[in-house]
Amino acid sequence: MNKYKVLLLAALAPVLLGLLIPLARQLVGTSPFISYRADVRRTPLRLYWKDEHGQRFRSLEGLKSWLGARGQKLVFAMNAGMFNPQYAPQGLFIEAGETIMPLDTAAGAGNFYLKPNGVFYLTTDSAAHICPSADFRPSPRVAYATQSGPMLVVDGQLHPAFRAGSANRQIRNGVGLLPDGRVLLAMSRRKINFYDFAEYFRQAGCRQALYLDGFVSRSYEHGARQTQTDGDFGVIIGVTEATVRPVRQ
């Protein structure tokens, strides 16, 4: 290395450090998960797939705009389960008490069929539940439900198929039940294996948690510096609150 390169590097070093140090501090202080804790007893939380015209919301932006036109603000949202090539929910989907897709108890390949898989559902008394698919019982009290798999945490234990150090890493999102009855919605910021993702829910106190989907996952939080409103998927889970007046379209 000649003396001119040495001089150039010496001159650039303070500039590079000035750029890298704040970035490093930001990365260290950033949680590896995007999460939201919803109190379903006080906060509206529901599942969305199609609008009143039978059109899929498709993306978080599509849902956000539709809600805004009806006087509701989307507070937090993410995709809420796997879907088939026609973007229909894979497995059970209940919306406003109506069973749109039946419970799938068949055997098969892929994450959805990694038993036990499970069901996340909301009842008419404003309570959230997660259970293995084999334990789900249809009831008029079930207002909303989505089936997915695998279960992440079952009765406080990680799914038996998960292995620490697994190289199977993807962006992942899921839902868990906190001890106080709140719902924990979470998505990893970086690729993560099932073991570490499930451990996040267990460490948060969830005795039941369900995997929702992988690399297609997106999340949105109102007011956050970084949000994702794109995507093209099936069912969406959304937390809302009323606004002062609806936006007319």
Rank of each mutant, 00 (worst) to 15 (best):
M1A: 09
N2L: 03
P14E: 08
L17V: 10
I21Y: 14
P22K: 08
L23F: 12
L23K: 13
L23S: 12
A24S: 12
Q26F: 14
L27C: 07
L27P: 02
F33M: 12
S35H: 11
Y36M: 10
R37D: 12
A38P: 10
D39V: 01
D51K: 10
H53K: 15
R58P: 03
S59H: 09
S59P: 08
L60R: 06
W66T: 00
G71N: 11
K73A: 09
F76K: 06
F76N: 01
F76W: 07
N84Q: 02
N84S: 08
Y87V: 04
A88K: 10
L92C: 05
A96C: 09
E98K: 15
T99W: 00
T105K: 15
A109K: 14
F112R: 13
K115M: 12
K115E: 11
P116G: 03
T123L: 11
H129G: 05
I130Q: 01
I130P: 06
A134H: 09
D135N: 11
P138G: 10
S139R: 02
P150W: 07
V153I: 06
D155I: 00
G156A: 14
Q157K: 14
F162G: 01
F162A: 06
A164N: 11
S166M: 04
A167L: 12
N168A: 11
R169D: 07
R169I: 04
V175A: 07
V175E: 06
G176V: 03
L177A: 02
L178E: 03
P179D: 00
D180Y: 00
G181A: 02
L185R: 09
M187W: 01
I192D: 00
Y195D: 04
D196W: 08
D196E: 15
F197R: 07
R202T: 00
C206N: 09
R207P: 00
L212Q: 10
D213P: 10
G214A: 04
S217H: 07
R218A: 07
S219A: 15
Q226D: 11
T227Y: 06
Q228S: 11
V235R: 06
E241V: 06
V244N: 12
R245K: 14
Q249T: 11
